[in-house]
Nucleic acid binder design. Structure first.
Lengths: 203, 203
DNA sequence: GTCTATATACGGATAGAC
DNA sequence: GTCTATCCGTATATAGAC
């Protein structure tokens, strides 16, 4: 607790970055030490092991992310369809800022299905959210067949996240620059909600 | 070249499996040797290094996959919309058989953008395919605005592949079994083409 | 071609000086 | 708290017998 920006914080910062870029196994603690500008031994002084550091950083990530999404779901001032637009925009903005995040997250989770998940389970908070209430209201008043919304949710998330996962491949095959890719993704902030709402209404 | 099923082939078989399950960095050559039932030293005898073995196996994978897709694209006996259905079914069946494949493929590619891609570039074959011809015919006769089909292609692939990438997370959060997940994916063989065709026609 | 034994390198972690 | 030096396990790769 000496420097103004504590070494501990600098390590976490760097770890977040390097882990997401290279994945857990391919990351060397030396990489993190180097990237954060602190000595390798400090890393084990503050966090006792690589694995421990990983868990801590990831839990923080997930927490921050969940909070931001739940805040949108529980905003009483927006309609169901407005929430879709806001969520889509929120996700896309977030991915543009952290392009490596989704693929990293999903590939690491395959290995540790239990550890990270068990700690933070927001399923109940999601089910009790205002957005879910609004959805129930919607299918009631519209007398629509009780369509299984899982497909719709899945489609939404798919159309948002997958392009970022496939980013390197897309750029390679189309010859797009990163700039052009981002522009395309920003276009989708308007397009995805339209597609989704069509799916719901043609259901 | 002694055994009926050559050791070389057994190693490649096992390597394909272990690499896709654990990723390149987390895979130990010992794992591969063990899984294939051959001695560790043999692995370096046939393929001189872990990296080399990886490249060989992956190139084969990509080749097989590309061939199967191009065959569908170039079938003159099916219409454009039939091809969509067939492609969707083909992809989903393939993913159900090899559930680890997409996430592995995409996460490894992020590291080596160049090597694997440069070898096999089917972009021109794709552009000259019958399916692309049929698409051009379609937008001409329908007098539709020359809609950028990139979004549509991206959406299709997203809705097919992403669920498999997110499989562990989906099962965790919904409590679904692998069986139920697969059933859901089979449902999508019919649903995805409908959604896509709607997108094209509402365009 | 296939094995055992081993060289060699690398990476996580710690001891101990400051 | 921060550094240098080092230990030690593990993983790739090879030498050499059969």
């Amino acid at each position: 607790m000496k420097k103004n920006k504590s070494a501990e914080e600098k390590i976490k910062e760097a770890a977040r970055l390097v882990f997401t870029q290279k994945g857990y196994a391919a990351t060397r603690t030396r990489d993190i030490a180097e990237a954060s500008g602190v000595n390798l031994a400090l890393l084990n002084y503050y966090f006792k092991s690589k694995e421990n550091l990983f868990d801590i950083v990831m839990l923080e990530n997930i927490k921050v992310f969940s909070q931001s999404v739940l805040a949108i779901l529980n905003n009483p001032g927006t309609t169901f369809f407005e929430k879709i637009e806001i969520l889509v925009g929120h996700y896309i903005d977030m991915m543009i800022e952290n392009p490596e995040m989704p693929i990293f997250f999903l590939s690491e989770l395959k290995g540790n299905p239990k550890k990270l998940f068990s700690k933070i389970d927001h399923r109940s908070k999601f089910k009790e959210s205002i957005m879910v209430q609004q959805w129930k209201e919607l299918i009631k008043t519209n007398k629509r067949s009780a369509f299984n919304p899982q497909h719709i949710i899945l489609n939404t998330i798919s159309m948002i996240i997958f392009p970022f996962i496939a980013n390197p491949m897309i750029r390679n095959r189309t010859g797009m620059s990163q700039e052009e890719f981002n522009t395309m993704m920003l276009e989708r902030k308007k397009l995805v909600p339209v597609w989704i709402i069509n799916m719901i209404q043609n259901n």
